[in-house]
Nucleic acid binder design. Structure first.
Lengths: 192, 192
DNA sequence: ACCGAGCGAGAACGAACGTTCTCCCCTCTC
DNA sequence: GAGAGGGGAGAACGTTCGTTCTCGCTCGGT
């Protein structure tokens, strides 16, 4: 078995378990059993549980960014690309394993006690906001639109997680439509 | 010392500690020391840590509802009452002890492992949405406005918590203004 | 065939947690 | 003043966790 194959399986298994039950609720021995790996190999690949957590966060960030880009990439019109963010959310919320944004959750669980986790969550959210800003720029929207849409997306995630339903995505999407059209209307009127 | 005085001090201290560092990170002995109470009295007042957590959630719910109502109550115009929600958030975010919504945090930490915590968080959020719905009704807004504003408020809380700044409240507020005016414009046009 | 290196299984360890128990002192009553 | 009862300080207990150690076994090179 390839070494990096064990690594990726460990991280993938940890991602699932941590997402389903929380980071602190999953011990190293359970992770070892679920990943089908020996405790020795586990500590050979990762020096500590904290490093596994950081690897999981990296994996989540990559998976989120790729999934988002894939959904947004399917449409061309700048306005619809902004709305596609919420289509991605809607599809994510329908996943049975959805239990809220992993970064919000890990921040809530460990942010106060682990500066690494807190900083990574901050970076992830900042990178999302930056991505939204690029999409908003392409649509010719004023700079204040991107934070508004980001906050909507954030709120949809926590609302869907706690309520246990996916309807927040639809509601956020229609709100986004209003905000986008208002912002674009402002720039159009300004340009005229 | 009054028995209920000890109870409230225990819950108040637990609220602070749990908010600052997370529920799982604060042990019973630390809580005992911070509350200035004996371990015996602690377990005399509460049968378990879980019951303290639930009492803290109740306290948070009451404090949130009262604070919100106080801020909203200062204005009379229905539209401004809806916006006052975000003024309340702005003032809350500026508090040094702000570390995100306690319900989102406790849900992320324990929701997957404690049905009681998950259900209480759900109830709290539902009661907030209901409150927003009443305010929106008073303003004559269509029913879809309240969930939109709730999602905005939710997103502002997590964004402010993770970013560590209060500006999300201002951004959410201006987004709310757009959504409210759009919704009221629709009803006004419908009425005409 | 033999030896050494690497691996898996799981025991072991120290710390921390939630909870209970023990001991001692203070106080109130007769 | 003696005894009982309640409360505080903290030791003790059982469990769980993260991490390390031990012990055989396997397997590749000579």
């Amino acid at each position: 078995m390839n070494i990096s194959e064990a690594r990726t399986r460990i991280v993938a298994t940890a991602d699932e378990l941590y997402n389903a039950r929380g980071i602190q609720a999953v011990g190293m021995d359970e992770l070892r059993a679920a990943a089908g790996v020996s405790l020795k190999k586990l500590y050979q690949e990762f020096p500590s549980k904290g490093s596994i957590v950081m690897a999981v966060l990296e994996r989540r960030h990559k998976s989120w960014a790729e999934g988002l880009e894939a959904t947004v990439g399917q449409v061309a019109a700048p306005r619809e690309r902004l709305l596609a963010i919420f289509d991605y959310l809607a599809q994510w919320f329908c996943d049975d394993s959805f239990r809220g944004c992993g970064f919000i959750n890990s921040f809530a669980e460990l942010g106060a006690v682990s500066p690494d986790v807190a900083e990574y969550a901050r970076e992830h959210k900042a990178s999302f906001q930056e991505y939204v800003s690029r999409l908003a720029d392409d649509a010719g929207a004023p700079t204040y639109l991107a934070p508004q849409l980001s906050i909507l997306a954030e709120g949809a995630q926590t609302t869907a997680a706690i309520a246990g339903t996916a309807e927040a995505a639809r509601q956020a999407r229609s709100a986004a439509e209003v905000l986008i059209d208002a912002a674009l209307g402002v720039t159009a009127r300004r340009a005229a």
